[in-house]
Simulated scan of single mutants.
Amino acid sequence: MSAAELLIVAGVALLAGAVNSIAGGGSLILFPTLVALGLGTVAANVTNSLAQWPGYLGGVAGFRPEYAGQRRRLLRFGAVAVLGGLAGSVLLLTTPSDAFDVLVPVLVLLASLLLAVQPVITRRLSGVDAAEPGRDPGWLYVVLFFATAYGGYFGGALGVILVGVLGIGLQRIKLANALKSALSAVTATVTLVVFGLFGPVDWVVVAVAAPAGLVGGFLGARIATRIPATLLRVVIVTFGVAVSVYLFTRV
């Protein structure tokens, strides 16, 4: 990429990091930008995954107080996320890129629609904050595996999926939101290792986008209360749907 294109990547990554802190959906901005700048869909996906990784760590740091007393649960769920993220990332690298090209418009559209209904999910689950349940339901581990496998394969709106699944399974929306960040970070770390060793990563783009995204995430957290999240979500969802339509026309 040229210096001008890398400057665009840095600016978009900064925006994506801020968007992730404010409303979620930063991948729906950075991924299509990388495709538009000439990266193949698989290369753009794995590069985007690595570039987003520092932001997940920042989210975990911000939720540290919520993890008190959750060590065993974090270990159990984290082990599932490792297996799921590994399965998804290996599936991406071992299946034909043509298959991903066909699936990616659907995945972008799905991620956009999930982001659109995120407030509805949150409102529905906010009324089920309850006392600590005695044991996590068995189905929750199965669904978490498939959710994190999706995260390893594509990852757009993974946080929305995890909040919904964990909110229903644990009946504690605040804890679900905190665990969402931890499991997203675990999944992203797995993809970092797998894609870093075997994926078609554009390391120059990662070197520019990762720190920019980290700064954007920090700034987004600072200004989150000043920006109407609903307006931002509408813009991101509209953009995501438009991108999916464009990608459908390329298949």
Rank of each mutant, 00 (worst) to 15 (best):
G159P: 09
V19Y: 00
V19I: 06
V46C: 01
L109H: 02
S181I: 10
R226M: 05
L110N: 14
A221E: 13
G24P: 01
G84R: 01
R250N: 05
G127L: 04
G55N: 00
G25C: 06
S244T: 09
P119L: 01
F63P: 13
T95C: 10
Y56S: 14
P105L: 05
L175M: 14
L14H: 03
T47V: 03
A23V: 12
V160L: 13
P137K: 10
R64E: 10
L39I: 14
I227N: 00
G55R: 02
A61I: 11
R222T: 04
A44M: 02
G38P: 08
Q70T: 13
G84Y: 01
T249S: 11
N48H: 10
A229V: 12
V204A: 14
L107P: 06
A79E: 02
V237K: 01
V234E: 11
T189R: 09
A43T: 07
S112I: 01
V235L: 15
V194P: 08
V237F: 02
V104S: 11
L158Y: 05
N48Y: 04
E132Y: 02
F145D: 07
R250F: 01
R222W: 05
L107I: 04
L115N: 03
G240N: 09
G217A: 07
G84M: 05
G25S: 02
I168M: 15
R233G: 04
D101L: 10
A61H: 12
L231K: 13
F248P: 05
A43V: 06
Y153E: 01
V142W: 15
L39R: 11
F63D: 04
L125R: 00
L14S: 03
L14T: 04
S112M: 06
V42M: 01
G78Q: 03
P228T: 10
L34N: 08
A116I: 06
G78T: 09
F145N: 09
L175V: 13
L74Y: 06
R72F: 07
V108M: 13
L15H: 08
T225W: 12
V104T: 11
A185I: 08
Q52V: 15
V102G: 07
V194W: 09
L214V: 06
P105H: 03
A18H: 02
T249I: 05
D98E: 15
